[in-house]
Simulated assay, not measured.
Amino acid sequence: MSGQQELQIDEDLSSKLLRKGKQSPFLMLGIAGLIGTCAYGAYKFKHRGQMSTSIFLMQLRVAAQGVAIGSLTLGMLYHMYVDYVVKAPKKE
């Protein structure tokens, strides 16, 4: 692949991510939550004390799932608000 083709692919992916971010802003919240949870887990892994690695990773997985479900819930509530409150159907 030439440098121009790689640049074109990167531009396409970044523009697609920006478009999806504008369509659903909670996608970015979910991605930020994932990165934050992973960073927190990496930091805390070193200071876990006597806790076994498997227990620590299970707790980290539950935290990551909580962030994902919270982001999905907020996104769903936002879209319901926009669809049913802001753009309320006109009564005939």
Rank of each mutant, 00 (worst) to 15 (best):
M58C: 07
K90P: 08
S24A: 12
Q65I: 02
G33H: 02
S54G: 01
V86R: 01
K20N: 14
G21A: 08
L27D: 05
Q50L: 04
K16L: 14
L34Q: 10
L34W: 13
V86S: 02
A42H: 09
Y78K: 00
K20M: 11
K22G: 06
G66V: 00
Q65E: 07
L18N: 14
G33K: 01
Y84Q: 09
K90N: 07
G3S: 06
L77W: 04
D10P: 10
Y78R: 03
Y40W: 07
A32F: 11
G33D: 04
S14A: 08
S14W: 10
S71C: 06
E11W: 08
A42S: 11
H79G: 03
L77K: 01
V67F: 07
M1T: 10
L74H: 11
H47D: 15
M1H: 14
V62E: 15
L18R: 15
G70D: 06
M76K: 12
H47Y: 14
S15Y: 05
M80S: 09
A42C: 14
L27M: 11
Y84H: 14
G3E: 05
I35N: 06
L27I: 14
H79L: 05
Y81T: 00
R19K: 08
I9Y: 12
Y84K: 10
A39K: 07
M28T: 06
M28H: 14
S24K: 09
F45Q: 10
A88D: 07
F56S: 04
Q59K: 08
G70Q: 03
L72M: 05
M80L: 08
T73F: 15
R48V: 07
C38D: 07
K90F: 02
H47E: 14
P25I: 00
Q50H: 11
G49Q: 00
I69V: 09
M51S: 10
K90E: 11
A42L: 14
Q23L: 12
G21C: 09
F56W: 03
Y81D: 02
R61N: 13
F26W: 15
A64V: 03
F45C: 07
S2W: 08
E92Q: 11
G41L: 00
S15I: 03
K91L: 11
Y84S: 08
I35V: 15
M58I: 13
L7R: 08
L13H: 04
S54K: 10
V67H: 02
P25R: 00
Q65P: 04
L18A: 13
G30A: 06
V86Q: 02
L74Q: 12
K91C: 05
S14C: 04
V67G: 08
D12G: 15
Q4N: 10
S2Q: 06
L18H: 15
K46I: 13
